[in-house]
Design a protein around this nucleic acid. Structure first.
Lengths: 347, 347
DNA sequence: TTGAAAGCGATACCAC
DNA sequence: GTGGTATCGCTTTCAA
């Protein structure tokens, strides 16, 4: 007994043509108040709902946007789902979720395209050039989220993207640590080849180099909690104090928390008193806030706004792809204990 | 230039009827190997993809499941999105996201139903009885996730649900704290009227009462990070040691972390040495693990499996609604420091 | 096995 | 403004 009520039924009950029913449910169509009212009454009494499938079959717009995500271990993405969903919902669009971690992306995209979706937000993996073309051919607009198009100039000019200013974020981190007077600054990297890691490290290195310093040590965390712990242990455990870093920039918060955990709970070091740690925002605020983690914050809202805007741009053909970069900002968090200490020193 | 390639085009190129094309793409239809091959070649060369909208218009099955979620602050839900999406994807279904925090749910559901979806997973808010009926009428199956149907017997027998065994989880928490020898056990509640909070507290109280004890103090956290901090401060800050709880059961992990944060960083208390804290799993493992938080773990996988199973059951009419309850388990986490201490005491 | 034709439920374009 | 009619791309009888 699937939703049998059709526009036809409503029309019959209201003594109107089916067209009248259609117009009543089409915002900004020309219907007299009188007919609209009669139709609405009939519709309500039957529990009529226009069939979105039938509609998009003819309008060629499904009002559905596909969101492709990798495994959501990275706590930054749920936030994106939420904001993006909400924002699109307000504009009459809806989000179809696709989980895929890269390899099978092509197969997944194949499914996606069957749904006649209006656009794709790729927040995981990359789009193979071949598929990018297919999307263009099918008229679906694509926006890369938090990743950058293939390095080829071709790709760069054929796919839109939104990223935060990872390079500048890396610079901010280095500047803060230098300003704090640290001399032995370490870096713990994320996935080596990811654009986020590359850009963050690049900016970081630039500033360190400009200051005439060098990165004291470099660990590899691969954006994994456990591997970041290992990296921290390798840097600190059983190492004489003189050979330890006095500051660490960690490529994302997820790992930064793992690092702080090792420092505080395994090695009884105080953060930030003994060691400065700076992360890069990818977990919800409550998490890093409770850790008193100083972090480079990515502005999710502007990123999502830009994504939606690009989506719309692309949907009307003629628009050229753009790569939008959203600024980051630094948020310092001293531990409450440190604040107290500072206060008592002053008095 | 929206995906113009239709079955018609393929048919023409392959010198076959459109029906042949349709059959080729319909698993288990009767087509000869010969024609199937010819069609496939033509299809591939044109980049043909069957139009899912047109298909579901006639089959009356969209293979889309709506997932209704509240704001995702609760870190438990992203995990659900991921697992559910993945599982459904494997079965040829896809997840359409709806963010809604309760009040506007009715309007949201109205939109949902236009998409001719096959089922709804409600992981936020409740379904008004009226809408429940509408869903039933439209033939969409509904499963409540992590919440229980309205208390009326009617609702209970007309809507399926999946929850973890919150009551038993509450009992486990109480049993552990009693076993550890605590005499002053406090509770910090979540949202007062939510079924999760009610059940957890109920089980907890039962065991405390059975032991001839009483709950030492009760705080209200409303499942909010900040309010949980306040509750912890109210219980511990400026309170003489003798009047402090020596153990706290917190209604979820999100709040438990806030509580531990206050205890450790504001009050310099050690957890679990000075105060035992037990949470209830609602954040990813990495989070509570790094806090050395002892917690009652909800088994996401079985919950998701049950959800999908119920969905399928409901989709074939005749199946009666069921309320599935998944067991919880306790995971103890001592701090590494405590482990070291224990080890050295022994030797 | 195969092709022709009848819908599925709406919108769009047309005269009126 | 309003009602008829072709059409969107496919699945589904039903003959052949």
């Amino acid at each position: 007994m699937k939703s049998k009520v059709t526009a036809q039924d409503v029309a019959k009950l209201a003594n109107m043509s089916q067209s009248a029913v259609s117009r009543t449910f089409t915002p900004g169509a020309s219907v007299s108040e009188d007919t609209r009212a009669r139709v609405m009454i009939a519709a309500k009494s039957l529990g009529y709902r226009p069939n979105a499938m039938a509609r998009s079959l003819i309008t060629r717009r499904s009002h559905i946007i596909a969101l492709v995500m990798g495994y959501l271990e990275n706590q930054f993405y749920p936030l994106v789902i939420e904001k993006l969903s909400q924002k699109l919902q307000k504009q009459g669009y809806h989000v179809l979720m696709f989980i895929s971690d890269g390899d099978e992306t092509d197969g997944v995209l194949d499914e996606i395209l069957q749904y006649q979706i209006d656009g794709i937000v790729m927040a995981s993996a990359m789009l193979s050039p071949d598929l990018a073309r297919q999307c263009a051919d099918s008229g679906v607009s694509v926006v890369l989220f938090n990743r950058v198009p293939d390095t080829s100039a071709l790709a760069r000019h054929s796919t839109s993207s939104v990223t935060s200013d990872n390079r500048e974020g890396g610079r901010l981190a280095a500047q803060l640590l230098l300003a704090r007077g640290h001399k032995h600054i370490a870096y713990i990297a994320g996935l080596e080849k990811s654009s986020t890691n590359l850009e963050r490290e690049r900016g970081f290195n630039e500033v360190i180099a400009d200051a005439g310093a060098t990165v004291f040590r470099r660990g590899m965390g691969h954006y994994s909690f456990e591997r970041a712990r290992d990296a921290a242990r390798a840097m600190f455990a059983g190492v004489p104090a003189a050979k330890r870093p006095d500051a660490v920039f960690v490529a994302n918060d997820h790992m930064a928390i793992a690092v702080m955990d090792v420092l505080r709970h395994e090695l009884d070091l105080r953060v930030p008193e003994d060691v400065s740690v700076v992360g890069f925002d990818d977990v919800p605020q409550a998490a890093w806030e409770s850790y008193r983690l100083t972090t480079v914050v990515q502005e999710v809202d502007p990123m999502v706004d830009a994504t939606v805007e690009l989506l719309h741009e692309q949907m009307q053909d003629g628009a050229l792809p753009r790569n939008v970069v959203i600024p980051c900002r630094m948020v310092e968090r001293s531990s409450v204990r440190a604040l107290r200490k500072r206060a008592s020193t002053r008095s």
